[in-house]
């Protein structure tokens, strides 16, 4: 994408930003995140359908913050994460240049976070039909069978926490799972620890997840953990009527309405 390379070069040459976070050539036929600090290196930037990593994850990392003001290459999932991070006061408008990339691979620059939100209002989160079907299939199983299904699905998990590291919204600098006095969640590949870890991860993302699937893409064992967050996204929409990131609305679980409806509390 020449336009992207040109823009990044101008930004670095004029010293408007000190680092460009983008996609570059990775091993095999994959792409990886690259951090460009010299204008001459900008030609390493690429953008195509292989660029699926969510770069927004780097915006909150101390190591990247140290490099100075960043510009970030942002396809739709990254834009969503940026809005969510902004809503959670994790990033500031003046400390970031967003180089948006539309699904048609056109470069768009955003003046403000509000402009990103407006842009996203025409690109709403949609749970793909195949996922909806899988979730429905799982929900239609008898409870015991469903439990066995998940114990089996989660069995390969060995707690590498790649799902956590890849997620732009898992930005806590200290995490419960690193606590070992006492060990809250077993670090072994134990079915109970696996279950507890994935429940905790999903619950901490409830009402915040922007459905970028970075967790699933990062999982070395291909565990369909994104089904949990997708299902929760549907639950949030059904129960609280909010869907997707928003600058002026609080997260579903950070807010409440006195007349929230449920049917199970006696």
């Amino acid at each position: 994408m020449n336009e992207l390379i040109q823009k990044a070069t101008i930004l670095l040459e004029s010293n408007s930003v000190q680092v460009v976070i983008g996609y570059g050539k990775g091993s095999a036929n994959r792409t990886r995140a690259i951090f460009i600090t010299q204008a001459a290196d900008c030609e390493k930037l690429i953008f195509d359908s292989r660029c699926i990593q969510n770069l927004a994850v780097y915006l909150t990392k101390q190591e990247i913050k140290k490099l100075g003001k960043p510009a970030i290459v942002a396809p739709i999932p990254v834009l969503r994460s940026i809005v969510q991070l902004a809503a959670e006061n994790q990033i500031a408008e003046n400390d970031l240049v967003v180089l948006g990339v539309t699904p048609e691979s056109e470069l768009v620059e955003f003046e403000s976070f509000a402009a990103i939100e407006t842009f996203l209002s025409t690109h709403r989160i949609e749970i793909e039909g195949k996922y909806q079907k899988t979730i429905e299939m799982i929900k239609s199983m008898p409870v015991s069978e469903r439990f066995a299904y998940w114990v089996k699905e989660l069995e390969p998990c060995f707690k590498c926490y790649a799902c956590r590291s890849a997620c732009p919204l898992c930005y806590c600098t200290r995490c419960t799972v690193e606590n070992n006095q006492p060990q809250w969640i077993s670090v072994a590949s134990h079915p109970l620890g696996n279950l507890e870890w994935h429940v905790m991860r999903a619950m901490h993302l409830a009402g915040r997840c922007t459905d970028c699937e970075a967790c699933y893409n990062a999982c070395p064992m291909g565990i369909p953990i994104h089904l949990l967050t997708k299902s929760m996204l549907q639950d949030v929409a059904e129960n609280f009527g909010t869907y997707g990131p928003s600058l002026d609305k609080l997260n579903a679980l950070s807010s409440f309405k006195p007349d929230d409806k449920e049917s199970f509390i006696r």
Binding site: I135, I138, K139, M141, V143, S144, E145, R146, F147, A148, Y149, W150, L195, V199, A202, M203, A206, G207, L227, L228, S231, M232, D235, V236, N239, A252, L253, F264
Partner: peptide
């Protein structure tokens, strides 16, 4: 939210 998640997990 928790109830929905637990239900999905069986």
């Amino acid at each position: 939210m928790f109830r929905g998640l637990l239900d999905l997990l069986g």
